[in-house]
């Protein structure tokens, strides 16, 4: 009878020197809010561009006493979130949760949880593309010099051209912001709905890009100013009247999916629901409890 072999890993998967590298660059990133700090990104058992930057940050900061939550587009149960959570759980043994309020570290792809985050929580964002200047300066070295010199004129021209061509600021996600009055930063593909939730927040935000080998950070109580014109202001995706079909929320970021009519395959409708599934589940539970309570 064959026995099942055990695979022994370091606590948090990556080795201690890799952790130290990430830790040193995180401290520099916090001291330079919004500045992209290069780091030696390691190979991981997932493909680069699928969350390796965020994963390395989480692996470098996680402690045995942490409670971890991993979300993908606000969803705790999508394949990416489940796989990353499973890897971290198996190599650290930490407790995991789907409840935002119970977590001490939240790793996320493209959303900030709806429930306000506290000062004892850290949000780790996975970043696919780092530099907001790539649209106007594809050469990374020249873009780095432009950041150093606060040379953001071409980005303003890009914004202006967007208004001239499309009639409005047509940046859907990855909205560029100025952090603490100095560095221009890409907000990763978080929706515009979440951009201002980075502004003067209580929690610490760490951004990791594994493929592009960059770490950046927004400390708590730091100003975030989205790029906007006096006559073309920054707007969120809010559409009055749209509600979540599950919990009835009107003040959350909603996603939509198409529901096919079972009686008529050609028919159907678009259904909107909260992107943050854990928050939505909580509200559904409260609604159900209220309905069941004796009058």
């Amino acid at each position: 009878m064959s026995t099942t072999p055990e695979q022994l890993y370091n606590f948090g998967f990556i080795d201690e020197d890799s952790k130290r590298e990430v830790r040193r660059q995180i401290l520099k990133a916090i001291a330079l809010p919004g500045h992209q700090v290069p780091f030696a990104s390691r190979d991981l058992p997932i493909a680069r561009g699928w969350g390796t930057g965020g994963l390395q940050i989480t692996m470098a900061i996680i402690d045995a006493g942490d409670v971890l939550k991993v979300i993908d587009q606000g969803d705790d149960e999508s394949v990416n979130a489940v796989n990353l959570r499973r890897l971290l759980q198996r190599t650290t043994g930490v407790t995991t949760t789907v409840d935002t309020t119970a977590a001490s570290i939240i790793q996320t792809r493209h959303r900030i949880p709806e429930e306000p985050m506290r000062r004892d929580q850290i949000l780790v964002l996975q970043v696919p593309m780092v530099d907001p200047l790539r649209w106007v300066e594809p050469n990374l070295e020249r873009a780095t010099v432009m950041h150093g010199e606060s040379d953001y004129g071409r980005m303003w021209v890009y914004m202006y051209e967007s208004v001239v061509k499309a009639g409005d600021l047509r940046i859907a996600t990855q909205y560029p912001v100025i952090v603490a009055g100095r560095y221009m930063m890409d907000t990763t593909p978080i929706p515009r709905w979440d951009v201002m939730r980075l502004h003067n927040a209580e929690a610490l935000f760490l951004f990791g890009a594994g493929r592009e080998k960059r770490i950046y950070a927004v400390p708590p109580y730091t100003t975030i100013e989205p790029l906007q014109f006096e006559d073309f202001r920054f707007k969120t995706e809010f559409v009055a009247g749209q509600i979540c079909a599950r919990c009835g929320a009107q003040d959350t970021f909603l996603t939509s999916h198409f529901v096919v009519d079972p009686t008529n395959p050609a028919g159907g409708y678009w259904r909107t629901s909260c992107s943050d599934t854990s928050f939505c589940d909580k509200r559904v539970l409260v609604n159900t409890t209220n309905q069941e309570a004796p009058q």
Binding site: Q7, Y9, F13, A64
Partner: peptide, 8 residues
């Protein structure tokens, strides 16, 4: 195969 980790 089971995945385990070393205690730090």
């Amino acid at each position: 195969m089971t995945t385990t980790f070393q205690q730090p």
